[in-house]
Amino acid sequence: MIEASALTKLYGDSRVVDRVSLTLDQPGVTAIIGPNGAGKSTLLSMIARLLPIDKGRAFIDGLDVTRTKGSELARRIAVLKQENGLLARLTVRDLIGFGRFPHSRGRLTAADRAKVDEAISFLDLTPLSDRFLDELSGGQRQRAFVAMVLAQDTPAILLDEPLNNLDIRHAVAMMRLVRKAADDLGKIIVVVLHDINFASCYADRIIAMQEGRIVVDGPAAAVVTEETVEAVFGLPVMVREIEGQRTCLFRR
C-alpha cells in the first residue's frame, strides 16, 4: 500500500531524513515517535508529496508519488498537517465537503453528500455542522479537519501530530477516534506522536526515529521497553504495565 525506499531529505549538508525505507500494508494504527528533529514530520510530508523528495522513492498503491497526478493520489492517501490555513471562515459542512474534492472536483453528488454526513456523524460534529470554523474551539476545529480527511475516503491516512494544542481530554478523544477509524473502517493510519504513552496505548505498530533514521520498528508491545525507549530518547525510563496499559514513566 504505502512503500518508501531510501527516502532522503537534505537541508544543506544535514540529512533530515536519511535513507528511510518502510512498508505499510496492514490496516491499523502505526505511530511514528522520536525526539524533536528526528525527521518524523518530514518523512510523512515526503510520502504525502507535500515536500519534494531529494533521494529515494515513495509509492502509494504502486504509484510513484512524484510522477502521479495529484488528483489520482488524493483518492488513495489523505494527509493532515498541524498547520491549517488562516482563511478558515468556512462552515464545518463546507470544509468536510471539500474532502470530496478529489472525487467530485467540486460538484457534490448525492453519494458525496452521504459520505460527508457519515464523516460528520463519525466525529460527532452534527450539532456543529453549520458553524463557522473560526467560531469553534481548537479541539473542535481539529476534529473538523479530521472529518474532512475521513470524507476523502482514502484507504490510507497520515496525521502529523494531531494531538498538538489539544488538552488531555481532547487528545484521548482524538486517539479513540483514530483507533475506531482503523478498526471499523479498516484504514491504514499513520500518526506522528510526541507522547510515547499515546503510541503505546493506541498504536498497533510503532516506528521510532532518531536523527533521520528508523531505529526501531515493530509491534507496540515490543517497542515500548525500557531499553528501547532509553536508546531512542536518551533518557532512562521505567516501563510498567498498569491495568493492562503499557506505560512509560521517566525516572526522577
Binding site: 495529484g70 489520482e72 498537517k81 491549517n84 490555513g85 482563511l87 467540486g106
Partner: peptide, 20 residues
C-alpha cells in the same frame, strides 16, 4: 471558485486534496 477556496486553506490542504 472551489479551487480558489481550497487554495485559501493553504498549500498542504490543497495538495492533499489533489489540487494542482
Amino acid at each position: 471558485a472551489d479551487r480558489f477556496t481550497l487554495a485559501g486553506l493553504g498549500r498542504d490542504v490543497s495538495v492533499n486534496l489533489g489540487l494542482a
